[in-house]
């Protein structure tokens, strides 16, 4: 990875910016994850209560319907159920918990008065009423459980996603960026050192050349002076 990056100062600055941004993102996501976990724990408690109630309501409803079927007969119970066509209605809205959109389920026409259940009051029994009551209670519990457990599931998914993002930042992106940063810094330092060394060499070479030129110039001057001395003596 680090070898793919060009070790330039511009890239170094870009990487430093990205590290800064990623660290801030990491902190924010960590806070979000912790907040979500706290919210999740609250919902989990609620979900456990709702699930316990749901199981209790289911057992009660089964007991009531079994006794109604035993004492009134399956035909009578099915007949009473067939006397009603209207089904409970459910409307869903949504609410936001720390950025997670969870459903809010509203139900209507679940609870019914004795004269709204379809079967006649005069010829029916308390066993059928209580079985119907128990199933109405059960439906309400199922709707509440659906709301709470869907919220819990969505929160859990969001916690997982956030956790994966935090981990990705913490264990992948930030180490990679830091590695790149170190790589570029090392390279730049290396380049700097090379440059200094090169400059020093150039300088030394230049000085040597200057010395040589000076020596040459001195030699030339000496030679010229010597030649001039010889010519004078010939004259």
């Amino acid at each position: 990875m680090a070898n793919d990056v060009k070790p330039t100062r511009k890239n170094l600055m870009e990487i430093e910016d990205r590290i800064d941004l990623s660290e801030r993102g990491h902190d924010t996501l960590e806070q979000k994850r912790d907040g979500l976990i706290m919210e999740f724990m609250d919902i989990l408690d609620q979900a456990q209560d709702v699930r316990d109630k749901l199981e209790g309501d289911y057992d009660t409803a089964q007991d009531k319907i079994n006794k109604a079927r035993a004492m009134e007969g399956d035909v009578a119970v099915r007949g009473a159920a067939a006397a009603l066509k209207e089904h409970p209605e459910i409307t869903t809205q949504s609410k936001n918990i720390m950025g997670v959109v969870v459903p809010q389920i509203e139900s209507s026409k679940v609870r019914k008065d004795l004269d709204e259940r379809g079967y006649g009051v005069l010829g029916s029994s308390a066993r059928i009423d209580e079985a119907a009551d128990a199933y109405e209670e059960l439906i309400e519990s199922i709707i509440l459980a659906a709301e709470v457990e869907t919220a819990m599931k969505k929160m859990l998914e969001e916690i997982e996603t956030t956790k994966r993002r935090v981990n990705a930042l913490e264990f992948k992106l930030l180490p990679d960026l830091n590695e790149n940063k170190e790589y570029i810094e090392q390279k730049l330092e290396e380049q700097e050192r090379e440059e200094i060394f090169r400059l020093k060499k150039i300088k030394a070479k230049k000085e040597e050349e200057e010395k040589e030129e000076e020596a040459e110039a001195a030699a030339e001057a000496e030679a010229e002076a010597l030649e001039a001395g010889v010519a004078e003596s010939d004259d």
Partner: peptide, 9 residues
Amino acid sequence: VLVPLENAV
């Protein structure tokens, strides 16, 4: 709803 008919019967 069938309630009035059932009660009538």
